[in-house]
Amino acid sequence: MIYSMVLSALFAELTARLTSLNDQILAGMNGMAGRSWFFDSIVGLTQGNDLIKAGLIGCCFFAAWYSGKTLEDTRVRRKVLLMTLVAAVCVLATTKVLSHTIFLPRPAIESQKIYHLSGQELVEMKRTNVRTALDEESQKDHRDLVNGDVKTNDLGSFPSDHAGFFLAISLGIFLASRRIGLVAIGWTVFVILAGKMIQAEHSPLDIAAGAAVAITELSVLRFAAQSRLGAILDKISLWTFKYNALSAALLFAIVFEISSTLFHVRALLALLAAARVHLMVG
């Protein structure tokens, strides 16, 4: 009884501190927005332009793929990168499931009049002071929000699928090649994810959760790669040498999709799901 009381008190304290830290970091990061059109436009470009946002990560992946000094070294790196791709897909699936389980409002939304469900009551939340970036896209998004043209998927932001996906890829690149991986991790953290917080699209908590999912799944898959999965990856990595031209073509398609956060694959899957429903329901 006492233990459970102490534990719940500790948990409540930790939760309160976590919330406070989350708010402080977000306020600090978002405080950079809305001061300079040029700065906001640069940040906006790193968020909206796939070439700038993810193209570099794709390039790093490509470089790591071909980076081994010997044939065996390259094969080992490719095996790690293949495992990374599996982890990245798993991470996207996990973050999607989590977003349906846990609902946390997007920071930008919290600047509006919102009510959250607390038990059986709707309680009005304290409005947070969120700075709106001055670039055109952010201004348009803000106008849409004020006018009620907000998509239901944009209401919640937990966890950050960008954090999960790009950190999984970057960490995988790091496991394959330290030097290239550092570039990828640096870009992910200081450009992609920092931009998300500056524009108040994600809170540090969203990003931490996405990162936790990425690190966990990458670690679990890394462990799994020691056994049966490893044997399959070995075969595939050997196959990439045997059919070099075909594997290079496939790699292009993969890197292309990495650069767009699997946007086209997701659209294709959504189309297939819609077609399934259409055929079943008529």
Partner: peptide, 14 residues
């Protein structure tokens, strides 16, 4: 922890 913080339902008054 996030679940404990989580606002499971939300109404945004536009």
């Amino acid at each position: 922890s996030c679940k404990a913080l989580g606002k499971d339902g939300l109404v945004l008054m536009t």
